[in-house]
Design a protein around this nucleic acid. Sequence first.
DNA 1: ATTATCTATAGATCTATAGATAATGC
DNA 2: ATTATCTATAGATCTATAGATAATGC
Lengths: 230, 230
Amino acid sequence: MPTSAPSINRFERRRAATRQALIHAARQILAESGDTSVSIQTIADRADVGFGSFYNHFESKAALFDEAVLDALDEYGRAIDERLEGIGDPAERVAFGVRLSARMAETHPEIMRILRHRGLGHIHSDRGLSPRALDDLTTGATSGRFTVSDPEIALSALGGSLLGLLDLHLTRPTGDSDKAAAAMAEMILRMLGVPAHEALDIAHRPLPADGSGRADPTASPRRADLRHPS
Amino acid sequence: MPTSAPSINRFERRRAATRQALIHAARQILAESGDTSVSIQTIADRADVGFGSFYNHFESKAALFDEAVLDALDEYGRAIDERLEGIGDPAERVAFGVRLSARMAETHPEIMRILRHRGLGHIHSDRGLSPRALDDLTTGATSGRFTVSDPEIALSALGGSLLGLLDLHLTRPTGDSDKAAAAMAEMILRMLGVPAHEALDIAHRPLPADGSGRADPTASPRRADLRHPS
DNA sequence: ATTATCTATAGATCTATAGATAATGC
DNA sequence: ATTATCTATAGATCTATAGATAATGC
């Protein structure tokens, strides 16, 4: 699973694999307990990597965990991009983004549990859902679709609300999570100035299907342009 | 500054003082870096308390930091209670609560910086703003002031939005924070189903003054009943 | 007499590095 | 020849406790 450019030679691939193994172990730990006080030895064992190798890749434990969060955010962003491809209406994009994120608590539990522990510091990040949502909020504010004075403030509310919903869902084994997500999406649309009846409608539209026959979202852009409404 | 019942005798008072010194030091650390990997020795030094005394009061570092967060939440809750005393309209209470919380980033920086690091796990807590907000949301939903299907979900959005605003304010030295808080309050009211024009009005009403000539909020309840609207 | 505090320390980690080993590039 | 990995370990913490000291209760 190459994150960016495939490595030139076997050396670099092996190096990248070690690095990824460490990040993967860190992600597991972040998702499970969120307790970053585990020893580097424990992390290396979990990654099935020699202890000393750690320092070939990261300066400190904190640096690894920070990288691991970014790694999860990037995967999150790619997953959302894939699903929202070809959807133009900012209101629909925001509502789907919220509901798809709630779904990901089941389909991508590791990512969402990491956000539960570490998400608060990344609401205004340039990784993950935030930059995409900020785009939609800005577009919507400009076009008049949304009534929003400052997209950054709207992003604070959107991102925070989503984390709150996630916390609710992950800590209390409560009722129907799809229903809860739709209710949240509806509230967020109203917050953004979408008329109440329309917010209700949009928040209950069928979610877009997983758009890919294949699993690599970076390799196949523009696939869904056919579905573009205009 | 006794948190609950004043201690019976000097022994208990001294014991309570040591405990409070440790909590106070932990609160400082949580507010400054949020890095809980500091040694117990460092914490004890900061509290000006003998190292061994730590174990008279807490089982572990994590237990102390958890207590410190609760301590800050309680102070937060008391501060908000004091300011909202006598205000009956749930919409007004919610809007004021949001704006007052934003103000507290200046007036009570320690509390709000702690929330910035640790708030996400306490959106549905029974300490701090959350239980008060949940009351208002439930009252408003029942009376028809709000259009909200599930108060817990509304609380997720309210609490999360507030943390998002706090993060925005504390990490980016951005523009007018009162203005931002009013914009956030307005959005939240719309989210709760308050008509847009009314949300705008309520979110810009003058904040209630600090109601106390004296500083002990626990000792003087019901002071502001005079201002009760009805 | 009782209880909390403090100082000192044993034992258990934990980090960072040095040096040996293994794999690949050229 | 080069580079990353691994093993082993020195030195630096760090935690938890034992025992001495100080303060208060009765």
